[in-house]
Design a protein around this nucleic acid. Structure first.
Lengths: 123, 123
DNA sequence: TGACGTATGTTACAGTTGTAACATATACGT
DNA sequence: ACGTATATGTTACAACTGTAACATACGTCA
């Protein structure tokens, strides 16, 4: 799992909150936030789909995008990568410390915690 | 402070352990590790110097490289960026959780902790 | 049915990073 | 003084990322 860019993360955050969404709907949220043109949003969405970060469907005749991985699973990958890279920590990781973040619900925290502490690959 | 790449971090780790070092000396350590040619190492060193990640001096007639920022200061920047980006946590950050890492000495941990918890910009 | 808005397909171009090779200068040994 | 190793200068090129524009197709309203 290679590092997510800020752009990619911005889109994932929107889709984790509500998915699937069309490019236009995503643009309505991410455009003002990142000051992107619709083209930029579309390009980024396309590349994310190519990388299998997003999956594509058609609803009511338009393309809609949804995340492939859950927020907790994605963030657990990101955390593992971060701690391995910068702190050379490979084993279980503590989550309590980040519990202050409002980004995850109680259930998502539980999932994240499980992912970071139970076996490495429990798909 | 934009994100460090793995390559950049690999070189910084070597130089945090011992600096300044010449390109050749750095290559002797990083080359086998990352399987880089000497050219690659030199290019990366040059770019890091351009970005002001490394400073350049001349010892005994050869160029030597040293990190501009301490390990603790660099890692504090990286941690802030990480937690802000992925967890939307901007304030003080906990370090106790990562204390397992062998990467920092006791004193470096204290510095890191201070950097992450005292005021944001105490140069 | 023709114009207009919206969705989708295609292309562009600069900056960064990974990964080097080629060319030149300089110094040291014989 | 000359060859050889080492250091340094310069250049290359592909992938990925940021940031779009241009072109086309399709559906709806007048």
């Amino acid at each position: 799992m290679s590092q997510l860019s800020k752009s990619e993360l911005a889109i994932l955050k929107i889709l984790w909150a509500k998915a699937p969404l069309s490019a236009r709907e995503i643009q309505d949220k991410v455009g003002p936030l990142l000051d992107w043109s619709f083209s930029t949003t579309r390009t980024t969405l396309g590349r994310m789909a190519d990388k299998n970060l997003l999956k594509l469907n058609t609803k009511h005749g338009v393309r809609v995008y949804a995340p492939v991985e859950s927020k907790a699973r994605t963030l657990s990958g990101v955390m593992r990568e971060f701690f391995d890279t910068f702190f050379e920590m490979k084993g279980p990781l503590p989550t309590a410390a980040f519990h202050d973040s409002k980004l995850l619900s109680e259930e998502e925290w539980m999932e994240l915690d499980r992912l970071l502490n139970e076996s490495g690959d429990d798909d």
